[in-house]
Each structure stands twice: as C-alpha cells, then as structure tokens.
C-alpha cells in the first residue's frame, strides 16, 4: 500500500482530477444556459438574451457571480455541520463517478476493470446526501423532499442496474473502455455502427427502461418529485441559498451529464464515430462522445418542458410494477438472444 502511494505522481493526479472537473464546470454553465434557452424556445419565448451579447451566453456566469455574493443562510435550528456538508457531498458523489467515464479514445480518468460497478456504487451516495440535506434543514418541506428522493433513488437504482446488466451480459466486461472499444466498426446491415442499441432488439427495450430510470435518478420531469416546485416548494433545497444551493444545482446537472454519458457509452458506442474511421481520433472521439451525451441531455430537457409530473405513488408503481419486472424479463431475453445468435 505504501509502495503504491509512493508510486503516484501528484501532478498526474491533479491533471486527472482537473480534466473531468473542467468538463463538468463548463458543461454546467452551458447546460444551465441551454436549459433556459430550450425552455424559452419550446415556450415560444427567447430565454436569456441580454447578458454577454449573443443570446445571453454569459447568463450562467452572471448567475454564478450573483450566487457567490449571496449571504450563506443557515437556519438556526438546523444541524449545522450536515447542512453545510450535504451539497458538497452531493457534488463529490457525481464528480467521483466521472473517474471511470471514457471521455475519448485516449483519455479515461481511471481505467479500472469494475468501472460500471464503481460508477453505480458511487452515485448511490447521492441518495445519502439528499437525505442529509433534507433532514439537516429541519424544515418539513425539506424532509418530505428528502424522503421522496430517498425512496425514488433507491427504487430506480434497481431497473438502472438491471438494464446495465443486460449490456454487461452482451459485452462481458465491466470496464467502460472495453465496452466502448467493442462497439467500434460499422458492420450492422452494412452501414450502421456496431453500437449495442443496434445489435440486439432487446437492448433497445433495455435502453428505453434505462432512459426512464435515469430520468428518475437525475430528478427530471416527469419524475422530479424531490424538488417539485408546485408541491414541495423546492424539496430538499428549500432552506439552501447562495453558493450551497449552486452546488446542488451543479451536482444535479453533473448527475444528468454523468448518466447521459453512461447511456451513451453503454448503448451508443461511447466515443466511437458513427462514420467508422472517418472523423475518429482522440479529439473527434471526445467530440462524438460529448455530442451523444448532450443529445441525451437535450432529450431530457425536451421531456421536462413537455410533460406534467407523476405523483409519488404512481412513480413507485411504475418502478416496482412495470420497470423492474420488465427489465429482468428483458435481461433473460437478451441473454437468450446472445446464446442463440
């Protein structure tokens, strides 16, 4: 162990830590702006237009500056340490999970063999931090939000994992880099890329279940119950303000990106170019990877600005009565397909 620690190059660690962090931060700024633009366009509005010139591109930066300057309000009767700690823990959980995401053909934070397992394990901490925030605020709305969130995340982890398992059954690897590399090439029907979603009809079903589950896991409409603003005011974030609230926001968007990137890796060939060798290479692969992830993020936004939200019991019903049985049946079918073909 000591030997292992001595072998670590601190600069390499810093670089490895800084790259996903930069990506997350830049993405969060862009995504928050984009979310508002998407909302605006869908609703026949324009969204932010004034800050920074072209289509208000600097809006998120201005918001960030405002949030930094705001007073850090901590309710008198809250558990101070937990209250302060929860947003950072939440962000840490999503940030840590980025370590195993293969951003490009030549870059992955940590190329470990249990990548998927690690990712799913680390994101479970999100639940903990949300309960922490909800409980520590000592606010009834926060408490309700926290409890809803705990129930929701724990439930939806099951179909998520079950669908991820289907991919693992097909690829036979837990390493996300290996899974991605297995999907390169354009062989299906002569032109389609070898992405898992095209390889097997049951994987398409798996993707639908996976997508619904990640919608719920990242608290997006129609499953945004923990922070449903018209019922629970703001759920577990009710008592938060300023920078701590911004951390929640950041973590939420990071989580959204993380799960979308996971989806892109598992089902859409990760950093593989859709045109085979054309436009591949380290830079292009990063481009394709982010494009796929951001497309999924866009679909999530699109859904958010279209649908009403489910009620908490319906949410549970969908999970336990539909998605979980379906995902396990699907797992068996995928396995059978793999055995037969």
């Amino acid at each position: 162990m000591t030997q292992y620690l001595l072998n670590i190059n601190p600069i390499a660690i810093l670089v490895h830590a800084a790259i996903p962090l930069t990506i997350i931060l830049v993405y969060a700024l862009v995504a928050i702006w984009a979310e508002r633009k998407v909302a605006g366009f869908i609703q026949d509005r324009l969204g932010p237009m004034r800050v920074g010139g072209w289509h208000g591109w600097a809006q998120s930066i201005a918001d960030l500056l405002k949030l930094i300057q705001k007073e850090d309000i901590i309710p008198a009767d809250s558990s101070r340490f937990l209250f302060k700690f929860a947003p950072f823990m939440m962000f840490a959980a999503s940030y840590a999970a980025f370590a195993v995401i293969p951003f490009s053909s030549s870059y992955i934070g940590s190329n470990i063999n249990i990548g998927v397992f690690y990712l799913l394990a680390v994101t479970s901490v999100l639940t903990l931090s949300i309960i922490m925030a909800g409980w520590a605020s000592n606010n009834k709305w926060s408490l309700l939000g926290g409890m809803r969130s705990a129930a929701q995340l724990v439930s939806y982890e099951v179909p998520t994992i079950a669908t991820v398992l289907t991919v693992i059954v097909v690829t036979g690897s837990l390493n996300l880099m290996t899974i991605t590399e297995m999907q390169s090439g354009n062989d299906i029907l002569g032109f389609l890329p070898n992405w898992l979603i095209f390889q097997n009809p049951f994987l398409l079903v798996a993707f639908v279940i996976f997508f619904i589950s990640i919608l719920a896991e990242s608290h997006r409409v129609p499953f945004d119950l923990p922070e449903s603003e018209s019922e629970l005011v703001a759920g577990y974030q009710t008592e938060y303000s300023g920078m701590r609230w911004a951390m929640f926001m950041l973590a939420e968007y990071a989580d959204m990106l993380l799960l979308s990137l996971l989806g892109a890796t598992l089902f859409f060939g990760g950093w593989n170019s859709p045109f085979g060798e054309f436009m591949s290479g380290p830079f292009w692969s990063f481009f394709w990877f982010m494009l796929k992830g951001l497309l999924l993020v866009f679909v999530m936004m699109w859904i958010r600005w279209t649908l009403p939200r489910y009620r908490v019991d319906q949410l549970m019903y969908i999970c336990w009565s539909i998605l979980i049985p379906l995902s396990f049946i699907n797992l068996v079918l995928v396995a059978l397909w793999e055995v037969i073909f």
């Binding site: 998407v38 605006g40 366009f41 869908i42 609703q43 026949d44 509005r45 324009l46 237009m49 699109w302 859904i303 600005w305 279209t306």
Partner: peptide
Amino acid sequence: MGITIRHFFGKSVT
C-alpha cells in the same frame, strides 16, 4: 413532444 418540438423551431413572441 411533437407539439413542443414544433414550437421549438417556431417563432418566438417575445
């Protein structure tokens, strides 16, 4: 979603 995407590419009233 079809309706909203149509509005997405439609004209804004702002």
